[in-house]
């Protein structure tokens, strides 16, 4: 399958008074058409920065972002209008992503107006259709966002993202601000839309366990770098990177069977260091249980441990050579 989105050596640095924050530091990955790629990481790992750079809220410091082979490594204001129609985003907090002073109808109509889709009546029909799609009543067009519950607001945000029939949707922790009871409903809805409209999702989350059922492939980020990228099944059954193992072993489980499925217990130690002065060598070596001399000296290169399974770790470097 063709990749719809290609990220090549993407860097996003922020210059602050305390130094340069290396939020995203040379990452590369591809997203295939109709695929969900889960981009997982702790807060401060650079996953949201990656999302905002792809959508164009930030301009990349260097590196390339290709959408359908077209270079879009510029902020959103410099992108052609058709691209804005094709790439959409759902933000984390539906409390702040909908303008409190506009009605749901006005919010959903905006993308249609901007892209000159239909006349007034067409647009009205389309707004009602969008509301029906996300299972909200028609008369919500007159309501203001604050009259809706958190889950309903996120449905509106999803409907807005889908209004222009995009090809790529960036989901920036779309469920993390919501009640657990609503999370499942939203996830199922997103999966249905993906199937119906052949959408590609770049799914940003810190919830690794969610990715098991949602993502086709999972990439894990740590301090601006990708540690491991693998198909979801592989990722959970056969993790390589010590950081991945640490994260998987820290997922809380209920039953003993689940406990057996987890890799051997690795106690998480320390906090994620500051991205202002990231540790030299492998970014993870300060917390790694399997570190050796080289880890604090050299950046690990990419190692292909299996087909489609990439790891950035010194432990596996020799395997490929030998």
């Amino acid at each position: 399958m063709e990749p719809i989105l290609e990220i090549k050596d993407l860097k996003k640095y922020f210059v602050t008074s305390r130094g340069t924050v290396r939020a995203v530091d040379e990452i590369s990955f591809e997203l295939l058409r109709g695929e969900t790629l889960g981009l997982v990481g702790e807060s401060g790992s650079g996953k949201s920065t990656t999302a905002y750079t792809v959508i164009g809220i930030y301009a990349p410091t260097s590196g390339k972002i290709l959408f359908r082979g077209q270079d879009i490594s510029v902020p959103v204001s410099k992108r052609p209008k058709t691209l804005k129609r094709a790439i959409q985003i759902v933000f984390q907090d539906p409390g702040t992503s909908l303008n409190p002073r506009r009605t749901i109808g006005q919010i959903l109509e905006l993308p249609l107006k901007v892209h000159r889709i239909g006349d007034r009546n067409d647009r009205r029909r389309r707004v009602v259709e969008l509301l029906r799609m996300v299972e909200l009543p028609e008369d919500y067009i007159y309501k203001a966002p604050h009259m809706l519950g958190g889950g309903e607001r996120q449905m509106v945000a999803i409907a807005r993202a889908l209004a222009t029939e995009p090809e790529l949707v960036i989901l920036d922790e779309p469920t993390s601000a919501l009640d657990v009871s609503i999370q499942a409903k939203i996830i199922n809805m997103l999966l249905d839309f993906q199937r119906e409209m052949n959408l590609s999702y770049l799914f940003i989350t810190h919830d690794l366990s969610l990715m098991r059922n949602v993502a086709h492939r999972v990439a894990i980020m740590y301090l601006g770098k990708i540690c491991e990228l693998a198909p979801a099944v592989e990722f959970f059954e056969n993790p390589y990177h010590p950081y991945t193992k640490m994260l998987l072993s820290s997922i809380p489980v209920v039953s003993e069977e689940e406990e057996k499925m987890k890799p051997e217990k690795i106690i998480s130690q320390g906090e994620i260091p500051s991205p202002v002065n990231p540790p030299p060598g492998c970014r993870f070596h300060t917390r790694c249980t399997e570190r050796n001399g080289i880890c604090s000296q050299e950046l690990p290169g990419m190692v292909r441990v299996r087909e489609g399974h990439l790891v950035w770790c010194h432990l596996f470097g020799k395997k490929e050579e030998g």
């Binding site: 164009g56 804005k84 992503s97 303008n99 905006l110 993308p111």
Partner: peptide, 21 residues
Amino acid sequence: EFFVQAAEVTGASKFHILFRE
């Protein structure tokens, strides 16, 4: 605010963002 970012990302005009958002 994210609602302004959302309008920017979808391609709304500066006029719309200043006066309507």
